[in-house]
């Protein structure tokens, strides 16, 4: 979910950039030197996964997976998404440099929320037993709901703060256009969390505190 250049007002851009910079600095502080390769690999994995297209009706949607990334990375999602958004702006013209801070907040804040809301649901028990499959499915689906729903809410807030009632219909259209992504992201995140618990339980055990 990228807002384009030239839409948001200067105060919103500046405020979002400052908050995003604070998030990146905090994320880097929490990210130990030894965890850099893991963060980079997970960041690259989510970047690659975001190119997977899922057919919906006559078109297709691509995955966003910010909730799932937040669940696995915690605050480190800020620097990881900063890198991804910078590359997307420079290489593919998705988003842009001025709006990078706002787009980073839109993607990363709901991801951090997903981490704190859902991490308890996916942690294995003391004896290493993975959580029940149903709970994993709920946690995965909630990743999609919190991640995409939160991103849509924050994008709407940024637009309201920039243009007031002028953007009301645009917000409605933006939310409507992201409904298929919302559903697909929730379904695939749910199945992925359940699969990860079976394939590599350590992946979920490593969910950052």
């Amino acid at each position: 979910m990228h807002l384009a250049e030239g839409v948001l007002s200067a105060p919103v851009l500046a405020g979002a950039a400052a908050l995003a910079a604070a998030g990146v600095a905090f994320g880097l502080r929490r990210l130990g030197e030894a965890q850099l390769p893991l963060a980079a690999l997970l960041g690259a994995a989510f970047f690659v996964a975001s190119t997977i297209h899922v057919p919906v009706g006559v078109g297709s949607v691509h995955l966003i997976l910010n909730g799932l990334a937040g669940l696995m990375l915690g605050w480190a999602v800020f620097p990881v998404f900063f890198v991804a958004l910078l590359l997307q702006a420079a290489l593919f013209s998705f988003g842009g440099f001025t709006v990078l801070g706002a787009n980073l907040l839109i993607m990363a804040l709901p991801a951090v929320a997903a981490h704190y809301l859902l991490r308890r649901l996916v942690r294995p028990a003391e004896d290493g037993t993975p959580p029940p499959r149903r709970r994993l499915l709920v946690a995965g689906a909630a990743c999609g709901i919190v991640g995409i729903g939160g991103a849509a809410a924050l994008a709407s807030l940024a637009l309201v703060l920039s243009g007031g009632h002028l953007f009301t219909e645009l917000i409605g259209l933006l939310v409507l256009a992201h409904l298929p992504v919302f559903v697909v992201d929730a379904l695939i995140s749910a199945a992925t969390v359940a699969l990860l618990a079976r394939m590599l339980p350590a992946a979920l055990a490593a969910v950052r505190a």
Binding site: A49, V54, I188, A191, L195, M199, A202, A203
Partner: peptide
């Protein structure tokens, strides 16, 4: 959905 979730899980496992 099942197959793409497998693909995504495999990519994440490979990364970890």
């Amino acid at each position: 959905v099942a197959v793409l979730a497998q693909q995504l899980a495999l990519i994440l496992v490979h990364a970890m």
